[in-house]
Each structure stands twice: as structure tokens, then as C-alpha cells.
Nucleic acid binder design. Structure first.
Length: 107
DNA sequence: CCGTTGACCCTTC
DNA sequence: AGAAGGGCCAACG
């Protein structure tokens, strides 16, 4: 039994390029649909190499600019990944929302 | 062990 | 439709 953030890190690390996931979704995949806050807090403690820029709000909007150094940066990174953006400034969740771990990671 | 805090989400005004 | 407030779950001191 690992810590919650620990599990979230693995899930975020599994997000394929060109896909995005929401905090609530990661929390639900981690086992607690209401622990989206824990996921965010874990992101701060997240080690380097974690594509935290692929994690967005439920609406597809990005968190505070202090999140990873600038939301503009995150938007640019996602575009580099191939993620489309709406004229509202939100990511196209309908088109790039991560379906989740299709594979039943054993156990 | 108990209290506080937090990259959020949802409901109501 | 937009803005404000409260609630929830787990980790940290």
C-alpha cells in the first residue's frame, strides 16, 4: 500500500502523449473521486519528469500560473504534444481527455 | 494522536 | 451566465 500521491504519480506518468487528464479523474483512478485536492498537492511534491502539465481542471482549464511556471507555458507544451485548444483558452477535453489505464495493471 | 493545510470540485446566490 | 463559499480526503507538523 503506497501513499496516495505515489499512486497519482504513476497514473500521471502513464498519460500518453497527446492526452490530458483532470485532477478529479486522477483522484478517481487513485481511488478517491473527492480527493482531487490531494492530487494537486501531490503535484507540488511531484518529482521532475512528471508531465504534470497534462493535468487540468474538470473544465479543461489550467490551474494558477504559479502551478508549473506559467499557464502559457503549459498551453504551449500541450500544443507541442498535439493537444488542441478551444478559443476560450481551455484544452479540448472532448478530444484529448485521457480514458484512463485501459490495461488492468494486474492486481 | 489531533489540528491545519492544500496545483480542487461542486452547489448556491 | 458569472462569482462566491463550503466541503471533502489525505498528508504533514
Amino acid at each position: 500500500m503506497q501513499t496516495f500521491p505515489q499512486r497519482v504519480y504513476r497514473l500521471v506518468s502513464k498519460i500518453p502523449k497527446g492526452s490530458v487528464a483532470t485532477y478529479g479523474q486522477l483522484a478517481a483512478l487513485a481511488g478517491s473521486p473527492r480527493a482531487a485536492r490531494i492530487v494537486g498537492a501531490a503535484m507540488v511534491r511531484a518529482p521532475a519528469g512528471l508531465p504534470c502539465h497534462r493535468v487540468l481542471y474538470s473544465d479543461g482549464s489550467l490551474c494558477c500560473e504559479q502551478a508549473f511556471g506559467g499557464k502559457e507555458i503549459q498551453r504551449g507544451l500541450l500544443q507541442e504534444e498535439g493537444v488542441s485548444f478551444l478559443p476560450d483558452g481551455r484544452a479540448n477535453l472532448k478530444k484529448h481527455l485521457w480514458p484512463g489505464p485501459e490495461e488492468p495493471s494486474k492486481k
